[in-house]
Write a protein that binds this DNA or RNA. Structure first.
Lengths: 160, 160
DNA sequence: GATTCTGAGTCCGTATTTTGAACTCAGGCT
DNA sequence: AGCCTGAGTTCAAAATACGGACTCAGAATC
């Protein structure tokens, strides 16, 4: 994916139209100002309407709409729960699809710490078994890590 | 980052306020419907206003605005170029900051292929040296890959 | 058994963004 | 001189977002 080093101004068109572009499809589901932030809340176990609202300061009408969309995309599930001696309520829980976004989230968070925040940031991702700090990296088929600069895109069905 | 397995409805608040959250800061820079797609164009070497517009179908006024924001965030640089026997024009080129987003992009693309597209997608990322297909993975301090399910968030400055 | 409280919304008028179409402007080409 | 092209700008209409008030059901309180 990394760019041609010496940008050549000759190439004019993206190799793949938008409809087949996985990134574009992902952007339809989570590419707006709030969805990412709502999912982050879910990653940290915040699942209740008013708690999300309080954390993010999102308007109620928008939160209602975004939650419905996230449920519609199967990123999150609405499910009932009851706290001891309280009436039954509904909360929102990540689905497997939503949980799998974590890798992209971690990558984006690390990028932001390096390039936007400019410092390590208050939360670190660790291996719950060993306690070791974790990073996101590219690995090849043998599991060896490869520097980003060596990654290039290749058409799978070579043109047509 | 991955969620507590058995979601406990007790936790109510995100561990970190929005202002310090790296993801939230990243979302301010690239969290809208078009910025991601524009950056994707840049990854593939498309750098001219009208080409981006044609690929994405984005309205001119929005593209102008988004490009200015991306330049403002130093994700992209506006720089002059001239093609043989043509007048000098301007194009947009990724900065190092922009290029480093590639890892998050690749992770998001793979997620989308797995969960949105449902099939491999037309572009694959390979090692330009070996040709080996590349994936995104979590690695610990010794470079061993760790499954996502073992990743948990930990506060770096342990509460206060 | 009426009133209050709380979580989880809905409704609504205003403000902001997006859209798409038309217009501009500079430089080169015929 | 007139036309074309890339890279915008301007503008009205449509879609979204915002924030405050309102609703509604069940528990708790008086």
């Amino acid at each position: 994916m990394s760019n041609l080093e010496s940008a050549d101004p000759v190439r004019r068109r993206a190799p793949v139209p938008r409809a087949q572009c996985a990134l574009a499809r992902a952007a339809e589901e989570i590419g707006d100002r709030w969805s990412l932030l709502i999912l982050r809340e879910a990653f940290f176990g915040v699942m209740r309407y008013d708690d999300i609202r309080a954390d993010l300061g999102i308007p109620r009408s928008v939160l209602t709409d975004r939650l419905a969309k996230l449920v519609g995309c199967a990123l999150v599930e609405k499910r009932p729960y009851q706290e001891a001696g309280d009436r039954r309520r509904f909360g929102y829980v990540l689905t497997a699809k939503g949980r799998d976004l974590a890798l992209a989230f971690i990558a984006l968070t690390h990028w932001s710490e390096a390039h936007v925040l400019g410092e390590p940031g208050p939360i670190e991702i660790v291996d719950k078994q060993t306690g070791s700090g974790l990073k996101v990296a590219l690995i090849d088929e043998r599991g060896r890590t490869v520097p980003l600069a060596r990654a290039v895109p290749k058409l799978r069905r070579p043109e047509r």
